[in-house]
Design a protein around this nucleic acid. Structure first.
Length: 454
RNA sequence: GUGGAUGUAGCUCAGUUGGUUAGAGCACCAGAUUGUGAUUCUGGGGGUCGUGGGUUCGAGCCCCAUCUUUCACCCCA
């Protein structure tokens, strides 16, 4: 029998890792609920027709497909088989796939339950997603997303609340040095129009999105290959290089977009988001208008977000935006506007590990371990255990009669901070040896006195 | 999906131009210590060198394939 292994890009999470992951997840869940988002879960697999066509051509290639059950070659086209046309053959032998994100399944749910849900509908969803990507650091084939979306309203208060939630989650996790990048598809379209590249937006978005990574010259090179004129490039970088505060950037762009409707709309939206933040009693801290931010997911139409933790070797840990046409893609007659974002738990974990931000006691399991010398004190210990648990103190007793050294070692290994050592003396007097495992101090206390220590 | 790097004990790594029974530190187990752990001392277990082929009298080391992890591209949480 060969040694067992895990599939590429997947991981086990042991108790120590789980404690830290729970810490992140609990924090996010708490904030989502505080902002009025109701939980939703959807199946791991969706029909392929639900998933394909929503993420662009690249995204479709990254979908995990599930082979049909039974005689799956029954419906396979003979010529496709003979010519080994895998791409075409896929849809003959597979009709289900694993979800690629949580937004598309959510849109599907909304369309299917249109009459039951009360709009505007706020839902949060914390579940794994799967991508057939090639794994790297901070990039897995199975990972958790934590989504919060609102559907059925155009109000930009939703965008403002997304910023508030991101800041609250990061505060709870102890992450202070981060940037919430914000942009608007309208601004991007406006720029394309302003430089005379309307109709050629996609290659422009793809290229400028990489600006902070590969630099101005490389982006220009890439765009020249896509037949952008020198005039267009000069104009483009004039707009991308506007520095200063968000207000300043908005003002400069406002002049450029005098006759461009989509650009105007983008600027108005962003200005309103910033206004709402101020009215709420907040400000623009950690928020940066980045006109080069484009994002690949093709369904975004309005504001777009991306969050980076600074000084770590991890890509973005959160992203999202507004999508106006997603329910229409599922045959919905009346179109519903939605906006949402997603935290990547796995990347937040990696970043926090790199920055050493996990609190030490995030790993503690039980608070007390009961140790004993003989069978009689074990029996007595069970009564003590029961009292501790009734008092709500997480505790356990060592299950086997063995040397006290081994029992205390076990407490150390599990990072249990206190032990109660019981022997014949303790059984007869009721004064228990209560030991602090961090500093080694020990005192004789009754069980009631011990409970009061917590 | 394209190209590059990597893999030796539970962990971090040594291992000479291919040459006998593959090493260290930490960790683990047992004893010194029959009512007290993270210090010290003594002893012990553990590796078909990622996997499968090949070259050779002989392979941890050379060649090929494959898998894992990782880096760049693509894309993205």
């Amino acid at each position: 029998m060969d040694k067992p292994t895990l599939p590429k890009g997947t991981r086990d999470f042991g108790p120590a890792t789980m404690a830290k992951r729970q810490f992140i997840l609990d924090n996010i869940r708490k904030v989502f609920q505080k902002y009025g988002f109701m939980p939703l879960e959807t199946p791991a697999m969706e029909n392929l027709t639900t998933l394909t066509g929503k993420y662009g051509e690249e995204g479709d290639q990254l979908l995990f497909k599930i082979l049909n059950s039974g005689d799956y070659l029954k419906n396979a086209d003979a010529t496709k088989l003979e010519t080994r046309n895998s791409k075409q053959l896929t849809f003959d032998i597979s009709e289900k796939g694993l979800r690629y994100d949580l937004t598309v399944p959510f849109a599907r749910y909304v369309v299917m339950n249109r009459n039951e849900v009360a709009f505007p509908f706020k839902r949060c969803q914390i579940q794994p997603v799967w991508r057939a990507d090639r794994p790297q650091k901070g990039r897995y084939r199975e990972f958790y997303q934590c989504d919060a979306d609102v559907v059925g309203t155009d109000s930009l208060i939703c965008e403002a609340e997304i910023i508030l939630m991101i800041r609250e989650v990061f505060k709870g996790l102890g992450i202070t040095d981060y940037t919430i990048k914000i942009n608007h598809r309208g601004i991007l379209n406006g720029i394309a129009e302003a430089i005379g590249a309307a109709g050629n937006e996609t290659p422009m978005f793809v290229a400028i999105d990489k600006l902070d990574k590969i630099g101005e010259e490389k982006v220009k090179e890439e765009l020249r290959e896509k037949n952008f004129s020198e005039n267009a490039l000069t104009k483009l970088f004039q707009l991308l290089n506007v520095k200063g505060s968000n207000t300043n950037k908005l003002a400069v762009l406002f002049k450029e977009f005098e006759t461009i409707a989509s650009g105007q709309k983008g600027l108005r939206d962003l200005r309103l988001v910033f206004d709402f933040l101020r009215d709420y009693g907040s400000d623009e801290s950690n928020v940066e208008l980045d006109v080069a931010l484009a994002r690949g997911l093709s369904y975004y139409t309005g504001c777009i977000f991306e969050v980076k933790i600074n000084n770590v070797s991890i890509g973005s840990v959160s992203g999202g935006g507004r999508y106006d046409n997603l329910t229409k893609a599922f045959g919905d007659k009346e179109n519903l506007s939605g906006v949402g974002f997603s935290f990547g738990v796995d990347r937040i974990y990696d970043a926090m590990e790199e920055l050493n931000l996990f609190p030490k006691d995030a790993q503690v399991s039980s608070k007390v371990l009961i140790c004993y010398f003989d069978d009689e004190s074990f029996r007595y210990g069970l009564g003590v255990l029961s009292k501790l648990r009734q008092a709500g103190i997480a505790s356990e007793i060592y299950p086997d009669l063995s040397k006290i050294k081994k029992q205390l070692d076990f407490a150390n290994k599990k990072m249990i901070p206190f032990t109660i050592v019981i022997g014949s003396e303790e059984v007869s007097t009721g004064a228990l040896a209560f030991k602090n495992m961090t500093n080694g101090e020990q005192q004789k206390l009754t069980i009631d006195q011990i409970i009061k220590q917590f």
